[in-house]
Computed example of a mutant assay.
Amino acid sequence: MGDLIYIQNDANSNINTEPNPQQSPQESEAPADTGDHDTPAGEESDYSDGNQSNILVPGQQDEWPVFDNPSSEEENENTWSSIITMFPKPIIPCYYCDSDQVGLVRFLNAAADYPAFYVFINDQIAVNGLDNGDMTQYGRVSAEELTITVTGENDYEYVKKQIQIPAKSAITIAIINTDSGLDLMVIEDILCNGGINTGCFRVCNLSITNRRINVMLNDGSVIFRNVNYKQVTNFQYTTTGYYMVSVSGSNFLSGNILLSSNIYIRGNVSYTLYVFNWSLTQNAIRILIVEDRRN
């Protein structure tokens, strides 16, 4: 991954490499709470602070923090997964803002067989060195139509797209493989209202080689059947506790497990399981579970 410069302390996020898929869920420990409690996302204080003057301009070194997903070189990549814990606190102050209405944006590189990307918002650098499987923290931007450009180190422009940023809402912009090259996909991020004993879990399939998958928790206690390429499922409520998450091809609900991972589901927390490729060959997939907490 390229050199990354952080503009705030990254104590608001944890990267937890998942246990070996052969490990029993009971043997895994729950991720530790950092103790950092922020204003819940969705309240106005998360989206504006009255200071709209700090615009990131070309040449500045301030960039959004990127949380990469470490894996051992000895580890078989098609069994690799990780969990990122994201707190709702966005980057302060508000960059790329020229209006009173702002929204939250983060970026995910779900594209295989490309070098690390540079991401620009309205021709201003936002992210440097976004590698496969990397996700940024949220940044605050104007709630309007913005131009998102993804380039390589040689300034080659892979994709340029106009994206409408919703006001007082949070989205993930994923860089994905398509049959005709790269594209940007907008994923709406919704916080869970499950209560203290219930979390919310959904699946987003961004794998171009495995265009229909099944995802199961604990061998079928929760099932997402036939999740198509570029589909984002609805959330399912899930009781807190340890789970084994398994991804399989859609033709084999109980067999042909492509990848498994342990997870501890917390109450009133939203989980999105992203499936995407690490190589453009059949079954060469990774999963990234993003844990979005209210506080």
Rank of each mutant, 00 (worst) to 15 (best):
I223Y: 04
I213F: 11
N210E: 07
Q236K: 12
N205T: 12
D189I: 02
D183C: 10
D179V: 10
F224C: 15
D183A: 14
F235V: 02
S169D: 15
S169I: 15
V232K: 12
R202M: 15
G249D: 13
G181V: 11
D219M: 06
M216R: 04
D189G: 00
T172L: 08
T172H: 01
V222T: 12
T178K: 09
G220E: 05
L217S: 06
I213W: 05
I223G: 14
C204P: 15
Q231W: 01
N214D: 12
V203I: 15
F224W: 14
V186G: 02
K230P: 06
N205Y: 12
Q236P: 07
C204G: 13
R202I: 15
G199D: 01
S180T: 08
N197Y: 06
M216Q: 08
N214C: 13
I187A: 04
V245C: 05
Q231C: 02
N210Y: 09
S169L: 15
G249Q: 09
G181T: 11
A170D: 15
L184C: 10
T233L: 09
E188T: 11
K230N: 14
G249L: 04
R202P: 15
N205C: 13
M216P: 05
R211I: 03
E188A: 08
V247C: 07
L184A: 14
N210S: 07
C192D: 11
I171R: 00
M216W: 08
T198Y: 01
D179E: 04
N210H: 08
T233R: 13
R202A: 11
N218K: 00
L184Q: 10
I196W: 03
V245Y: 04
I190G: 06
I190C: 04
I208D: 00
T238L: 10
A170H: 11
I196A: 10
I187S: 08
G241Y: 08
E188Q: 05
C204H: 13
T239Y: 03
M216Y: 01
M185N: 01
E188N: 09
T233P: 13
L217V: 06
L217R: 06
E188C: 01
G241D: 10
T209F: 03
S246I: 08
R211E: 01
D183Q: 04
D179P: 00
C204F: 14
E188M: 05
V222K: 12
V203A: 09
V247R: 03
N197H: 02
S169P: 15
L184T: 13
N197T: 09
Y242V: 13
T209A: 03
C200D: 14
G194L: 06
D183V: 11
T172Y: 02
V215Y: 10
C200E: 10
Y237R: 15
Y242G: 10
V203P: 11
I175T: 05
Y229E: 02
N197P: 00
I173A: 00
T240P: 03
N197S: 06
Y237P: 04
V227S: 12
I187P: 06
A170M: 09
L206P: 06
N177S: 01
G199L: 08
S169W: 13
F224R: 14
N197V: 07
D219T: 04
I213A: 07
M185H: 08
C204R: 14
N210A: 05
S180L: 13
E188R: 09
S221Q: 07
T233H: 08
Y242T: 12
G220T: 01
N197D: 04
